[in-house]
């Protein structure tokens, strides 16, 4: 494509840069103020780099606030959901994509109903159900619903990937006398790495950041995940913006790092989910 100088081109470049500033600067501002004290944030130096790096804000956020607990809860929930959803959906997708039985297509289409239902619509019955199953006041009260809700997307992506693999893979294994489970885990799974990582990233991000269900289910402080634990604006940190900023930066690090390391995979995982609505 030729790159002549033109007014249009300059305008479009300007716009790209301006929006990059709009998109990034609030975050940079947050990182900056996480190193400042109130005097500096409000009066002396609201916009620029901190004059002194007050890393004590971070120590304070980590120690005097239950951040380690929230972190642990978020991690436990994410790992448990990943384990349950991936196991269930790999087995289900394999059965519907490669095994032969009556109604396999109907069954698969049935699970795609979940793609069209926003989770908050069934918040009320879920709360009642979790209470009746005696899961309330445990992390299972969010793990099980999250796992169930991520099935539809996970099955859809894995089904697509499984359909594109050649059947010769199983033939070789079958002649060697392996049963279907051994074959699935030894032969098929190594060929599904791309699809599995897409699904895993999507599930991790959506579980890590989920708010609505966690708000209803996790009322005890000991059980809160990060998005809930950070709801401290009306709480003890109101007056200390620096420590508050530090806590928010710490809480954001895992997903931002994940994104910076695997940016293309993350973008793909997020947008594939949009394209099925």
């Amino acid at each position: 494509m030729s790159k002549r100088f033109s007014v249009g081109l300059v305008c479009s470049r300007m716009l790209l840069i301006i929006y990059a500033v709009i998109s990034l600067y609030p975050l940079i501002w947050m990182v900056f103020y996480s190193f400042k004290n109130n005097q500096e944030i409000f009066i002396d130096n609201p916009f620029g780099l901190p004059t002194v790096f007050r890393y004590q804000n971070y120590v304070k956020a980590w120690e005097s606030f239950d951040l380690p607990v929230y972190f642990r809860n978020s991690l436990l929930v994410a790992v448990a959901v990943l384990a349950i959803t991936l196991t269930c959906s790999i087995l289900f997708a394999y059965a519907t994509a490669r095994m032969r039985f009556r109604g396999q297509n109907g069954l698969r289409m049935f699970t795609s109903i979940g793609l069209f239902i926003p989770m908050q619509v069934i918040l009320i019955p879920l709360a009642v159900l979790v209470r009746d199953l005696h899961l309330n006041n445990t992390l299972w009260s969010v793990i099980i619903p999250y796992a169930a809700f991520n099935l539809s997307f996970s099955i859809m992506v894995l089904y697509g990937a499984l359909r594109s693999l050649p059947f010769e893979l199983e033939e070789a294994a079958c002649i060697d006398g392996a049963n279907v489970f051994v074959c699935l885990f030894r032969v098929i799974l190594p060929n599904l790495k791309a699809a599995l990582s897409t699904v895993a990233i999507f599930i991790f991000l959506s579980v890590w950041n989920e708010f609505n269900l966690a708000l209803i289910m996790l009322t005890r402080d000991k059980l809160k995940t990060l998005p809930l634990g950070l709801l401290f604006f009306q709480g003890e940190f109101t007056t200390d913006w620096g420590a508050m900023g530090a806590a928010m930066v710490i809480a954001s690090l895992p997903t931002v790092l994940l994104y910076c390391l695997f940016s293309e995979r993350v973008e793909k995982a997020m947008t594939v989910s949009g394209a099925v609505k």
């Binding site: 349950i84 196991t87 269930c88 959906s89 087995l91 289900f92 394999y94 059965a95 519907t96 490669r98 095994m99 032969r100 039985f101 069954l107 699970t111 109903i113 979940g114 239902i117 619509v121 069934i122 009320i124 019955p125 879920l126 009642v128 159900l129 099980i144 619903p145 796992a147 169930a148 809700f149 099935l151 539809s152 099955i155 199983e170 049963n179 279907v180 489970f181």
Partner: peptide, 29 residues
């Protein structure tokens, strides 16, 4: 590819989870 108990073991966990936690609540709402 078509041993019935294999299919049942594979389909059931996901199906039960989905029915109990997604479909049943929709009906209840």
């Amino acid at each position: 590819f078509s041993r019935p108990w294999h299919i049942v073991v594979m389909v059931l966990p996901a199906l039960v989870l989905f029915l109990v936690m997604v479909i049943y609540p929709i009906g209840i709402v």
